[in-house]
Write a protein that binds this DNA or RNA. Structure first.
Length: 363
DNA sequence: AATCCGTGGTT
DNA sequence: TAACCAAGGAT
Protein backbone atom coordinates (compact mmCIF):
# COMPACT_ATOMS: atom_id res chain seq x y z
CA UNK A 1 0.00 0.00 0.00
CA UNK A 2 1.53 3.30 -1.11
CA UNK A 3 1.88 5.65 1.90
CA UNK A 4 -0.06 8.53 0.36
CA UNK A 5 -1.07 10.06 3.65
CA UNK A 6 2.49 10.12 4.91
CA UNK A 7 3.53 11.89 1.73
CA UNK A 8 0.76 14.47 2.03
CA UNK A 9 1.61 15.13 5.67
CA UNK A 10 5.26 15.53 4.76
CA UNK A 11 4.36 18.02 2.03
CA UNK A 12 2.19 20.14 4.30
CA UNK A 13 5.09 20.56 6.69
CA UNK A 14 7.92 20.88 4.19
CA UNK A 15 6.68 22.46 0.97
CA UNK A 16 8.79 25.36 -0.26
CA UNK A 17 7.28 28.80 -0.71
CA UNK A 18 7.20 29.90 -4.35
CA UNK A 19 5.54 32.97 -5.86
CA UNK A 20 3.41 30.74 -8.11
CA UNK A 21 2.06 28.96 -5.05
CA UNK A 22 0.58 32.15 -3.61
CA UNK A 23 -2.48 32.21 -5.80
CA UNK A 24 -3.81 29.50 -8.01
CA UNK A 25 -4.96 31.47 -11.00
CA UNK A 26 -4.70 29.47 -14.18
CA UNK A 27 -2.67 32.15 -15.97
CA UNK A 28 0.07 32.21 -13.34
CA UNK A 29 0.16 28.45 -13.00
CA UNK A 30 0.44 28.07 -16.76
CA UNK A 31 3.33 30.54 -17.02
CA UNK A 32 5.15 28.98 -14.08
CA UNK A 33 4.70 25.43 -15.34
CA UNK A 34 6.11 26.31 -18.75
CA UNK A 35 9.03 28.16 -17.20
CA UNK A 36 9.67 25.18 -14.93
CA UNK A 37 10.01 22.76 -17.84
CA UNK A 38 13.54 21.36 -17.58
CA UNK A 39 14.48 24.28 -15.37
CA UNK A 40 15.16 24.38 -11.66
CA UNK A 41 12.67 26.29 -9.56
CA UNK A 42 15.30 28.54 -8.01
CA UNK A 43 16.24 29.81 -11.44
CA UNK A 44 12.64 30.42 -12.46
CA UNK A 45 11.74 32.66 -9.51
CA UNK A 46 13.22 35.98 -10.73
CA UNK A 47 11.99 35.39 -14.29
CA UNK A 48 8.50 34.58 -13.07
CA UNK A 49 8.31 37.64 -10.83
CA UNK A 50 9.40 40.06 -13.55
CA UNK A 51 7.13 38.40 -16.08
CA UNK A 52 4.05 38.58 -13.88
CA UNK A 53 4.75 42.18 -13.01
CA UNK A 54 5.00 43.19 -16.65
CA UNK A 55 2.33 40.80 -18.01
CA UNK A 56 -0.08 40.23 -15.11
CA UNK A 57 -2.88 38.78 -17.22
CA UNK A 58 -3.53 36.77 -20.33
CA UNK A 59 -4.85 39.83 -22.15
CA UNK A 60 -1.89 42.01 -21.25
CA UNK A 61 0.36 39.32 -22.67
CA UNK A 62 -1.67 38.83 -25.82
CA UNK A 63 -1.29 42.53 -26.58
CA UNK A 64 2.47 42.60 -26.02
CA UNK A 65 5.08 42.84 -28.76
CA UNK A 66 6.92 39.56 -29.18
CA UNK A 67 10.36 41.10 -29.04
CA UNK A 68 9.66 42.94 -25.82
CA UNK A 69 8.19 39.84 -24.20
CA UNK A 70 11.15 37.76 -25.34
CA UNK A 71 13.42 40.04 -23.31
CA UNK A 72 11.63 38.73 -20.21
CA UNK A 73 12.47 35.17 -21.23
CA UNK A 74 16.07 35.89 -22.18
CA UNK A 75 18.41 33.63 -20.20
CA UNK A 76 15.89 30.90 -19.41
CA UNK A 77 16.72 28.76 -22.42
CA UNK A 78 14.54 26.44 -24.54
CA UNK A 79 13.03 29.43 -26.29
CA UNK A 80 10.46 27.38 -28.11
CA UNK A 81 8.66 27.60 -24.78
CA UNK A 82 8.41 31.34 -25.24
CA UNK A 83 6.97 31.07 -28.72
CA UNK A 84 4.46 28.52 -27.46
CA UNK A 85 3.40 30.91 -24.71
CA UNK A 86 2.79 33.72 -27.18
CA UNK A 87 0.85 31.47 -29.56
CA UNK A 88 -1.32 30.21 -26.74
CA UNK A 89 -1.87 33.72 -25.39
CA UNK A 90 -3.19 34.91 -28.72
CA UNK A 91 -5.20 31.76 -29.22
CA UNK A 92 -6.94 32.23 -25.87
CA UNK A 93 -7.16 36.02 -25.86
CA UNK A 94 -10.66 37.05 -24.81
CA UNK A 95 -11.51 33.46 -23.96
CA UNK A 96 -10.97 31.33 -20.89
CA UNK A 97 -8.64 28.38 -20.41
CA UNK A 98 -10.03 24.91 -21.01
CA UNK A 99 -10.32 22.90 -17.82
CA UNK A 100 -9.73 19.38 -19.02
CA UNK A 101 -6.22 18.01 -19.34
CA UNK A 102 -7.05 16.61 -22.75
CA UNK A 103 -7.95 20.04 -24.11
CA UNK A 104 -5.13 21.85 -22.36
CA UNK A 105 -2.77 19.39 -24.01
CA UNK A 106 -3.71 20.81 -27.40
CA UNK A 107 -2.37 24.29 -26.60
CA UNK A 108 1.03 25.13 -28.14
CA UNK A 109 3.81 24.29 -25.71
CA UNK A 110 1.48 22.49 -23.31
CA UNK A 111 2.39 18.82 -23.31
CA UNK A 112 1.05 15.93 -21.33
CA UNK A 113 2.76 16.90 -18.08
CA UNK A 114 1.92 20.62 -18.15
CA UNK A 115 -1.67 19.93 -19.13
CA UNK A 116 -2.06 17.47 -16.26
CA UNK A 117 -0.38 19.86 -13.82
CA UNK A 118 -2.73 22.74 -14.68
CA UNK A 119 -5.80 20.50 -14.66
CA UNK A 120 -4.82 19.11 -11.29
CA UNK A 121 -3.50 22.19 -9.50
CA UNK A 122 -6.04 24.70 -10.78
CA UNK A 123 -9.12 22.75 -11.75
CA UNK A 124 -8.78 19.84 -9.32
CA UNK A 125 -9.16 17.24 -12.03
CA UNK A 126 -8.26 13.71 -11.01
CA UNK A 127 -5.36 13.03 -13.35
CA UNK A 128 -1.88 11.55 -13.12
CA UNK A 129 0.79 14.27 -13.09
CA UNK A 130 4.09 12.78 -14.19
CA UNK A 131 7.27 14.74 -14.58
CA UNK A 132 10.93 13.85 -14.20
CA UNK A 133 10.73 14.06 -10.42
CA UNK A 134 7.78 11.71 -10.22
CA UNK A 135 9.47 9.30 -12.62
CA UNK A 136 12.57 9.22 -10.43
CA UNK A 137 10.56 8.64 -7.24
CA UNK A 138 8.64 5.84 -8.92
CA UNK A 139 11.78 4.29 -10.36
CA UNK A 140 13.16 3.97 -6.85
CA UNK A 141 10.01 3.13 -4.97
CA UNK A 142 9.06 0.37 -7.40
CA UNK A 143 12.64 -0.42 -8.56
CA UNK A 144 11.85 0.12 -12.23
CA UNK A 145 14.72 -0.74 -14.57
CA UNK A 146 14.32 2.19 -16.97
CA UNK A 147 15.49 5.73 -17.48
CA UNK A 148 13.40 8.67 -16.28
CA UNK A 149 12.45 9.61 -19.82
CA UNK A 150 11.24 6.10 -20.55
CA UNK A 151 9.25 5.93 -17.33
CA UNK A 152 7.69 9.36 -17.87
CA UNK A 153 6.34 8.59 -21.31
CA UNK A 154 5.34 4.99 -20.69
CA UNK A 155 1.55 4.67 -20.62
CA UNK A 156 1.88 2.02 -17.93
CA UNK A 157 3.27 4.67 -15.60
CA UNK A 158 0.07 6.64 -15.95
CA UNK A 159 -1.95 3.66 -14.83
CA UNK A 160 0.47 3.08 -11.98
CA UNK A 161 0.11 6.64 -10.70
CA UNK A 162 -3.67 6.53 -11.04
CA UNK A 163 -3.66 3.40 -8.93
CA UNK A 164 -1.89 5.16 -6.07
CA UNK A 165 -3.85 8.44 -6.24
CA UNK A 166 -5.68 8.86 -2.92
CA UNK A 167 -9.44 9.41 -2.86
CA UNK A 168 -9.07 12.82 -1.27
CA UNK A 169 -6.45 15.48 -1.76
CA UNK A 170 -5.19 13.87 -4.93
CA UNK A 171 -4.10 17.27 -6.28
CA UNK A 172 -1.99 17.88 -3.19
CA UNK A 173 -0.68 14.35 -3.47
CA UNK A 174 0.51 14.93 -7.04
CA UNK A 175 2.24 18.15 -6.10
CA UNK A 176 3.78 16.43 -3.09
CA UNK A 177 5.21 13.67 -5.27
CA UNK A 178 6.92 16.27 -7.45
CA UNK A 179 8.19 18.17 -4.43
CA UNK A 180 9.54 15.01 -2.86
CA UNK A 181 11.52 14.26 -5.99
CA UNK A 182 12.91 17.79 -6.12
CA UNK A 183 13.84 18.09 -2.44
CA UNK A 184 14.34 14.60 -0.98
CA UNK A 185 14.46 11.94 -3.68
CA UNK A 186 17.07 13.87 -5.62
CA UNK A 187 19.14 12.39 -8.41
CA UNK A 188 22.32 12.71 -6.43
CA UNK A 189 22.65 12.25 -2.70
CA UNK A 190 18.98 11.61 -1.93
CA UNK A 191 17.91 12.23 1.68
CA UNK A 192 16.40 8.85 2.35
CA UNK A 193 16.51 9.39 6.10
CA UNK A 194 14.01 12.22 5.67
CA UNK A 195 11.78 10.41 3.18
CA UNK A 196 8.20 9.54 4.14
CA UNK A 197 8.25 6.69 1.61
CA UNK A 198 11.48 5.03 2.69
CA UNK A 199 9.96 2.25 4.80
CA UNK A 200 8.30 0.71 1.76
CA UNK A 201 10.71 1.90 -0.95
CA UNK A 202 12.08 -1.06 -2.95
CA UNK A 203 15.34 0.68 -3.78
CA UNK A 204 15.93 1.77 -0.20
CA UNK A 205 15.04 -1.63 1.23
CA UNK A 206 17.57 -3.27 -1.08
CA UNK A 207 20.13 -0.51 -0.43
CA UNK A 208 20.38 0.23 -4.14
CA UNK A 209 18.95 3.74 -4.26
CA UNK A 210 21.84 5.10 -6.35
CA UNK A 211 21.15 2.51 -9.04
CA UNK A 212 17.84 4.15 -9.92
CA UNK A 213 16.82 5.60 -12.24
CA UNK A 214 18.94 4.05 -15.00
CA UNK A 215 20.88 6.51 -17.13
CA UNK A 216 21.95 6.35 -20.76
CA UNK A 217 24.97 8.36 -21.76
CA UNK A 218 25.30 10.36 -24.91
CA UNK A 219 28.31 11.80 -26.71
CA UNK A 220 28.54 15.52 -27.16
CA UNK A 221 29.45 16.91 -30.57
CA UNK A 222 31.86 19.77 -31.02
CA UNK A 223 31.34 22.78 -33.23
CA UNK A 224 33.80 25.57 -33.98
CA UNK A 225 32.45 29.04 -34.62
CA UNK A 226 33.84 32.40 -35.57
CA UNK A 227 32.14 35.68 -34.77
CA UNK A 228 32.97 38.86 -36.67
CA UNK A 229 32.37 42.10 -34.80
CA UNK A 230 31.48 44.60 -37.47
CA UNK A 231 31.41 48.16 -36.22
CA UNK A 232 30.44 51.16 -38.23
CA UNK A 233 30.06 54.70 -36.89
CA UNK A 234 29.92 53.34 -33.34
CA UNK A 235 27.18 50.89 -34.18
CA UNK A 236 27.38 47.12 -34.20
CA UNK A 237 25.99 44.87 -36.89
CA UNK A 238 23.46 42.38 -35.54
CA UNK A 239 21.54 39.61 -37.27
CA UNK A 240 18.15 38.33 -36.20
CA UNK A 241 17.80 34.55 -36.26
CA UNK A 242 14.68 34.33 -38.38
CA UNK A 243 13.41 30.97 -39.60
CA UNK A 244 15.90 29.03 -37.49
CA UNK A 245 15.26 25.88 -35.51
CA UNK A 246 16.98 27.15 -32.40
CA UNK A 247 17.25 30.55 -30.72
CA UNK A 248 14.42 31.64 -32.98
CA UNK A 249 14.00 35.40 -33.31
CA UNK A 250 16.93 36.15 -31.05
CA UNK A 251 19.76 38.45 -32.13
CA UNK A 252 23.45 37.70 -32.52
CA UNK A 253 26.64 39.07 -33.94
CA UNK A 254 27.52 37.70 -37.39
CA UNK A 255 28.66 34.14 -36.74
CA UNK A 256 29.84 31.27 -38.89
CA UNK A 257 29.59 27.74 -37.58
CA UNK A 258 32.13 25.41 -39.10
CA UNK A 259 32.99 21.90 -38.05
CA UNK A 260 36.76 22.13 -38.35
CA UNK A 261 39.18 24.04 -36.28
CA UNK A 262 41.46 26.49 -38.09
CA UNK A 263 39.35 27.25 -41.13
CA UNK A 264 41.06 29.83 -43.35
CA UNK A 265 40.24 33.45 -42.78
CA UNK A 266 39.23 33.68 -46.40
CA UNK A 267 36.65 30.93 -46.01
CA UNK A 268 35.33 32.46 -42.81
CA UNK A 269 35.04 35.84 -44.45
CA UNK A 270 33.10 34.29 -47.31
CA UNK A 271 30.72 32.52 -44.94
CA UNK A 272 30.10 35.67 -42.96
CA UNK A 273 29.60 37.68 -46.11
CA UNK A 274 26.75 35.48 -47.20
CA UNK A 275 24.89 36.24 -43.99
CA UNK A 276 25.60 39.92 -43.74
CA UNK A 277 24.82 40.97 -47.27
CA UNK A 278 25.72 39.20 -50.41
CA UNK A 279 27.53 42.02 -52.07
CA UNK A 280 30.23 43.00 -49.63
CA UNK A 281 33.62 42.44 -51.19
CA UNK A 282 35.66 39.62 -49.73
CA UNK A 283 38.67 41.91 -49.54
CA UNK A 284 36.73 44.18 -47.26
CA UNK A 285 35.67 41.35 -45.01
CA UNK A 286 39.23 40.17 -44.74
CA UNK A 287 40.03 43.56 -43.32
CA UNK A 288 37.27 43.03 -40.80
CA UNK A 289 38.93 39.98 -39.33
CA UNK A 290 42.30 41.38 -38.40
CA UNK A 291 42.24 41.16 -34.63
CA UNK A 292 41.21 38.32 -32.35
CA UNK A 293 39.45 39.72 -29.30
CA UNK A 294 38.92 36.59 -27.24
CA UNK A 295 37.59 33.07 -27.37
CA UNK A 296 35.27 31.02 -25.22
CA UNK A 297 33.24 27.83 -25.24
CA UNK A 298 29.54 27.42 -24.73
CA UNK A 299 27.56 24.23 -24.21
CA UNK A 300 24.22 23.86 -25.92
CA UNK A 301 21.90 20.92 -25.46
CA UNK A 302 23.47 18.60 -28.00
CA UNK A 303 26.80 20.17 -28.88
CA UNK A 304 29.56 22.30 -27.50
CA UNK A 305 30.66 25.39 -29.39
CA UNK A 306 34.21 26.71 -29.34
CA UNK A 307 33.91 30.33 -30.38
CA UNK A 308 36.52 32.83 -31.55
CA UNK A 309 35.62 36.49 -31.65
CA UNK A 310 37.35 38.65 -34.23
CA UNK A 311 37.22 42.35 -34.94
CA UNK A 312 38.84 44.89 -37.18
CA UNK A 313 41.34 47.64 -36.77
CA UNK A 314 39.83 49.23 -39.83
CA UNK A 315 36.92 51.52 -39.07
CA UNK A 316 34.13 51.50 -41.57
CA UNK A 317 31.82 54.40 -42.16
CA UNK A 318 28.42 54.78 -43.74
CA UNK A 319 29.93 57.11 -46.28
CA UNK A 320 32.56 54.69 -47.37
CA UNK A 321 30.12 51.82 -47.75
CA UNK A 322 27.33 53.75 -49.41
CA UNK A 323 29.64 54.67 -52.25
CA UNK A 324 29.66 51.04 -53.23
CA UNK A 325 26.46 50.57 -55.13
CA UNK A 326 26.80 46.83 -54.72
CA UNK A 327 26.46 47.12 -50.97
CA UNK A 328 23.23 45.71 -49.66
CA UNK A 329 22.52 44.60 -46.14
CA UNK A 330 20.62 41.39 -45.36
CA UNK A 331 16.96 41.85 -44.44
CA UNK A 332 17.47 40.53 -40.94
CA UNK A 333 20.51 42.75 -40.27
CA UNK A 334 20.58 45.94 -38.24
CA UNK A 335 23.23 48.32 -37.01
CA UNK A 336 22.62 48.94 -33.32
CA UNK A 337 24.21 51.44 -30.95
CA UNK A 338 26.05 50.09 -27.96
CA UNK A 339 23.46 51.35 -25.50
CA UNK A 340 20.67 49.63 -27.42
CA UNK A 341 22.32 46.20 -27.38
CA UNK A 342 20.53 45.34 -24.15
CA UNK A 343 17.16 45.97 -25.77
CA UNK A 344 17.59 43.04 -28.13
CA UNK A 345 17.03 39.46 -26.92
CA UNK A 346 20.29 37.49 -27.06
CA UNK A 347 21.17 33.87 -26.45
CA UNK A 348 23.88 33.17 -23.91
CA UNK A 349 26.79 32.99 -26.36
CA UNK A 350 25.90 36.27 -28.05
CA UNK A 351 25.20 37.78 -24.66
CA UNK A 352 28.70 36.89 -23.60
CA UNK A 353 30.12 38.82 -26.54
CA UNK A 354 27.77 41.68 -25.75
CA UNK A 355 29.07 41.81 -22.18
CA UNK A 356 32.60 41.96 -23.52
CA UNK A 357 31.77 44.89 -25.78
CA UNK A 358 29.85 46.75 -23.11
CA UNK A 359 32.67 46.32 -20.63
CA UNK A 360 35.23 47.74 -23.00
CA UNK A 361 35.61 51.44 -23.75
CA UNK A 362 36.02 50.62 -27.41
CA UNK A 363 36.85 47.75 -29.69
C1' DA B 1 10.84 6.97 -32.14
C1' DA B 2 15.06 9.14 -31.85
C1' DT B 3 16.66 13.69 -31.79
C1' DC B 4 16.73 18.35 -31.00
C1' DC B 5 16.07 22.41 -28.18
C1' DG B 6 19.49 26.49 -23.53
C1' DT B 7 21.27 27.58 -19.55
C1' DG B 8 23.81 28.00 -15.13
C1' DG B 9 25.12 25.30 -11.31
C1' DT B 10 27.41 21.15 -9.40
C1' DT B 11 30.66 17.47 -9.19
C1' DT C 1 37.69 21.08 -17.61
C1' DA C 2 34.38 17.83 -19.05
C1' DA C 3 30.39 15.56 -17.78
C1' DC C 4 26.16 15.72 -15.80
C1' DC C 5 22.05 17.67 -14.14
C1' DA C 6 17.09 20.36 -13.51
C1' DA C 7 9.07 20.86 -12.65
C1' DG C 8 9.27 18.54 -21.11
C1' DG C 9 7.57 19.37 -25.79
C1' DA C 10 7.61 19.05 -30.73
C1' DT C 11 8.83 16.83 -34.83
Amino acid sequence: MFPAQALISWFKKNSRAFPWRNRRGVYGVWISEVMLQQTQASRVIPFYKKWMQRFPSLNSLAQARDEEALLYFEGLGYYKRFHGIMKTARLLSGKSFPKQAELLNKLPGVGKYTAAAIASLVFKQRVAVIDGNVARVLSRYFAIESSCAEIAKDSKTEALVESILPKREYAVFSEALIELGAVVCKKQQPSCNACPLALSCAAWLSKRVERYPLVLGRAQKKVFSTIGIIEKDNQFLLLKRENKTRLTDMWEFPILEHHKQGLSKQAIAKGLREQIGEQIAIEELNLLLTRKLFSFSHSYTSFKAYVEVWASDVKLSHEKLSKKKSYRLAKNARYVRKKALLKKPFGAAAARVREYLLAKAST
